[in-house]
Design a protein around this nucleic acid. Structure first.
Lengths: 212, 212
DNA sequence: GCCAAATCTAAGCGTTGTCAAGATGAACTT
DNA sequence: AAGTTCATCTTGACAACGCTTAGATTTGGC
């Protein structure tokens, strides 16, 4: 019984494309049962294959997780790009990128967990996400250049500004859901206002900083 | 064979104080074998008891991890406090707190991992770390007040500034070790300069922002 | 049509978190 | 001082996990 899968990549043997199917199964498990339930066996079960089948497409569990993580970074980049209107003023564009980053993490918390669990294990972001010419990092870099944040040492300072922005967005993305902030969110009239308020305090995102 | 443990709390029965011993064993395992090796059984093994013994002191694994996490936040606070000279200018004090935060995470990466793995699972920081009158968060708050960052809506804006700072420090702490930044660190002449550079871009830490 | 390679299954190893049942020994009662 | 109580710890077991090996099955190339 061969599954009809006309858009086959380099691995259209028995199953059709088990590698692709596993990644989609993983995504389903992640959305349904959360990141703690994402075991290699659970993914295989969800895809309808034996627990050992994934080992023909991924060296071990951590390589599967890495692939899931990389897909997540791709999706994150897509969302950031489509949120950053290239015709908008650079200031707004940078802010839009920051908001998009945090909103993605909030909309897909399980994926985001896996993305950074892997990155912390490997002590690096996926090269695809960071180095790629059309990756998320270079999107931010271009917006930063347009905004003109550089000072004396342009090359280094630009890089630093982007890294600082990424770190700030990541920290906020991981902590924005913490219950300690609930009362403040309520006091501000919603999480959206809270988010904008915090971002306004983070240098590179904040045109709102001198509004008070 | 009773262990001599004169400073007994409410549980000085067979072992002496297994709860304390387990936390110390966990700390040893963490430093020696890293966060991925921190299993309930490994901790019990390190403490020299059976795998089921911890269940008389912790409801389940996640409660053990939470206790470890809370101890970590205590240590973090101690380090932040002793790094923030109360007689220093408020500006420097805030910056010192930020540097201390990141340096703690860098010095004890395994503990820091457990601290935030638990927090993410529970979607909250330990109440002890956040609410306590003498906790790390209120230390930051006081320094922020002295520095005078508040704008129109003082109460809310102060809270936002502290949250933003915490998020930024956390993001930086988790990402500062990523290998993608190695070349930039080298170009800047060391990780210390890199760290200061990034912090200077993060609004609430940066008196260096207008130095360029 | 056949062979070699690729793919998947079956079975099993060692480990993990967790639980129920029993052994142990300190503390309280009388 | 003996016996009871009860928190503490051990033993043994279970299901689920990551991973490995051996074998069955299908595919593509000759």
């Amino acid at each position: 019984m061969k599954l009809p899968c006309p858009i086959v990549g380099p691995k259209p043997y028995h199953h059709g494309d088990l590698r692709r199917a596993l990644l989609e199964a993983a995504s389903r498990v992640l959305e349904r049962d959360g990141p703690n339930a994402l075991s290699l066996r659970a993914v295989a079960r969800e895809a309808g294959v034996s627990p050992a089948a994934p080992y023909h497409h991924f060296k071990d569990k951590s390589e599967l997780m890495l692939a899931i993580s990389e897909e997540g970074f791709d999706q994150l980049y897509d969302f950031m790009r489509q949120s950053a209107d290239p015709d908008a003023p650079p200031m707004e564009r940078v802010a839009a990128i920051g908001v998009a980053y945090v909103e993605f993490a909030k909309a897909h918390p399980s994926i985001y967990r896996v993305m950074y669990d892997r990155s912390r294990d490997l002590e690096a972001l996926p090269d695809k996400a960071h180095k790629a010419e059309d990756g998320a990092f270079s999107l931010l870099k271009k917006a930063m250049i347009d905004r003109g944040v550089v000072s004396s040492d342009q090359e280094v300072d630009l890089e630093l500004a982007c890294i600082a922005a990424w770190c700030a967005a990541h920290g906020l993305a991981e902590m924005v859901g913490f219950r300690q902030f609930d009362s403040l969110k309520a006091k501000m009239g919603g999480e959206k206002a809270f988010l904008a308020g915090v971002l306004s305090h983070l240098g590179m995102f904040g045109q709102a900083r001198n509004r008070g």
